[in-house]
């Protein structure tokens, strides 16, 4: 098959998983080396349906793969771009792999600076997709909530999470580093991750366990959430932009929000309206006890204060 034919016919490329970055990278190198134009590749992942026109890709010959320079120019890819591409591969947008390939193709066909050019529309879109995924990974680190599995030795914790993108594998290293000595599972609709203190295994996805009884510790967490909130400073938009409503259904504290907000106005008005009260009885005793142990500043320090403050000033200048 000559180069012209290879570049024109449709190739159906099968990736192992929807977030199979390594597979994409390997196949992209082969196709780039073989000169397959971006429009000729159909990227499929996970099961894949037969395409009428597609033809199962003929894997590039070992020689072509080991010597990609022979047929096409494989660009030197900056590490920054690889990190970006690894994130983009986890996005759920269907054309993510095609877009990544198109950019590589352009960079190796007359646009060498492209991968460093964030103002280019394709690169701009990649950055936006990558940012979505990085944000989702970060939110997953933040909003996964473990529950202790009752009556299991050694301690085991599990969490149910519904990530917007395929971020389970991307984020699980973080949980390994943080909870290395705990046994835990994180289950998502697509896939699950399991750590037994030694190794990380991935298994099938699962379902939300609606019947699970909340643990006692959740009640304490909700107590904390309700009391750390300051009703005099309601800022709902700030809360929602950082903790979008889509996460609320799996956050044990979220059901409190409506009522905290509802009562906030009355609570802060009550603080403003209430008259000052008499100090409690222990106040005078505590103050007196203190005064005998430590002279108050007004008694002992006042005379030395002026010079000391001016010392401090010169120190900070």
């Amino acid at each position: 098959m000559n180069h012209q034919q290879q570049s024109q016919r449709l190739h159906k490329v099968q990736l192992a998983r929807p977030d199979d970055f390594d597979g994409w990278r390997r196949l992209a190198r082969q196709h780039l080396a073989a000169g397959s134009v971006p429009e000729s590749i159909i990227w499929e992942f996970g099961g894949g349906t037969a395409d009428l026109f597609g033809e199962q890709v003929a894997p590039a010959s070992p020689a072509a793969a080991s010597n990609p320079q022979r047929t096409g120019q494989v660009p030197v890819v900056p590490r920054r771009f690889l990190e970006l591409a690894r994130c983009v591969a986890c996005h759920r947008t269907p054309d993510r792999f095609a877009l990544l390939y198109r950019v590589l193709w352009r960079a190796s066909h007359g646009e060498p600076g492209l991968l460093d050019l964030p103002s280019d529309p394709d690169m701009h879109r990649l950055h936006r997709l990558g940012k979505c995924v990085a944000r989702e990974r970060h939110k997953m680190h933040a909003f996964v909530r473990f529950r202790q599995t009752p009556e299991v030795e050694p301690e085991h914790f599990s969490a149910w999470f519904e990530p917007e993108h395929h971020t389970l594998r991307l984020s699980s290293d973080f949980f390994v580093r943080r909870f290395a000595n705990m046994h835990w599972s994180i289950v998502t609709p697509d896939e699950s991750a399991h750590w037994n203190g030694q190794s990380l295994q991935f298994g099938p996805g699962g379902h939300r366990n609606k019947g699970a009884a909340p643990e006692a510790m959740e009640q304490l967490w909700k107590t904390y959430f309700a009391n750390i909130f300051n009703p005099a400073r309601l800022k709902l938009d700030a809360m929602r932009s950082e903790m979008p409503v889509k996460y609320w259904k799996n956050l044990p504290e979220a059901p409190l929000i409506a009522e905290l907000v509802h009562n906030a106005g009355a609570r802060s008005q009550a603080m403003v309206d209430s008259l000052p009260s008499e100090p409690p009885r222990f106040a005078s005793r505590a103050t007196a006890a203190r005064a005998t142990r430590h002279p108050t500043p007004s008694e002992s320090i006042e005379h030395g204060r002026k010079s000391r403050i001016s010392d401090e000033r010169s120190e900070s200048d």
């Binding site: 970060h138 680190h141 933040a142 909003f143 973080f174 390994v176 580093r177 943080r178 909870f179 290395a180 000595n181 705990m182 959430f225 750390i228 909130f229 300051n230 009703p231 400073r233 309601l234 800022k235 709902l236 938009d237 700030a238 809360m239 950082e242 903790m243 956050l251 504290e253 929000i257 905290l260 907000v261 906030a264």
Partner: peptide, 28 residues
């Protein structure tokens, strides 16, 4: 730091994490 070579739990990775937000918009 992380817990891979330790007995307990915990890690810090430079970037802080806000695990929740109160209705006052403040990070928890």
């Amino acid at each position: 730091r992380d817990s891979l070579d330790g007995r307990g739990v915990g890690s810090t990775e430079g970037m802080g994490i806000c695990h929740s937000y109160a209705p006052d918009g403040r990070c928890i």
